[in-house]
Design a protein around this nucleic acid. Structure first.
Lengths: 144, 144
DNA sequence: AAATACTTGCAAGTAAGTTGCATTTGTGTT
DNA sequence: AACACAAATGCAACTTACTTGCAAGTATTT
């Protein structure tokens, strides 16, 4: 298959990681590159409607990309998993409980909490944390 | 039905909230009172094996109790939801990625982060947050 | 251009949670 | 203590999110 310049970077990322540059995967990375908020597999599936990709393929690709550390899995209050580019850097989310809108928030500032909890918990190490905020966005507040 | 002293408190909690004190519900609250870590519906279902309760009943009861604010829903890295007594107070969890052990950690200390994010996000209000830590517990670390 | 290992799509399966409806059970009232 | 009635339960069936197996297709290496 032939690709335009824009997807070239995606192809490189894949091949650097010993993954074949299939249309599904290149398109997948392109979608993430153009989106600032976490996406569920269902979200992605809808975006693929024109070219048509099986959901199973998406699940399998999310899995490989997460294992390689290219994509990160995020859990919110939902039952389904969300995904975002790991290269977007460590950050957290603010989620509107009414409309579901998700806002990325850079910055973190809880390292000292993490260290405190590591000591108090008696765990050997803490490798990861998730911090999500839930509230009401400005536009939902207006509607009431 | 007749109850011993221990469950009396559970019955009161239910009746104060206009819920009938059924055996399923009283037993449910008793289980939570004697457990310090979040439980999934499947966990609870197993604990009910002797007296036998339908899973649907558990789901429905979790729902009412969560809506009344008696029980709190917690989401970890899993697909399923976990539940804990809301009266245990605001706290967070440290989860072992290897064995799944969950440790309650009292204290929080992220109010100022919450305030900062509220301002930066442009949201109208932040009502809730979840903060979970993942790592390796001491006993899993020893095993390697 | 062929060989081959990696990917994909389809079908079917599992786990977690939900819905509808007939039956049972707490609870306030007699 | 028994009655009436709303509330709660159990069963069956369904949905959603995700997984597995396998045959067929495709990207890459040579």
């Amino acid at each position: 298959m032939k690709w335009d310049k824009h997807t070239k970077q995606s192809i490189e990322v894949l091949q650097e990681n010993q993954l074949k540059a299939t249309s599904a995967r290149v398109e997948l990375l392109d979608i993430f590159k153009h989106t600032q908020k976490p996406l569920s597999v269902t979200d992605i599936f809808k975006m693929f409607q024109k070219i048509g990709v099986d959901k199973v393929t998406l699940y399998r690709n999310m899995d490989s990309l997460v294992n390689l550390g290219i994509i990160r899995q995020v859990r919110l209050k939902d039952r389904q998993a969300y995904y975002e580019l790991a290269s977007h850097g460590h950050h957290h989310h603010v989620v509107c409980s009414q409309c579901g809108r998700i806002k990325d928030m850079s910055g973190c500032g809880i390292n000292f909490v993490s260290k405190k909890f590591l000591k108090l918990s008696g765990f050997a190490k803490i490798t990861e944390h998730s911090l999500e905020f839930f509230g009401v966005c400005a536009s939902c507040m207006k509607k009431r």
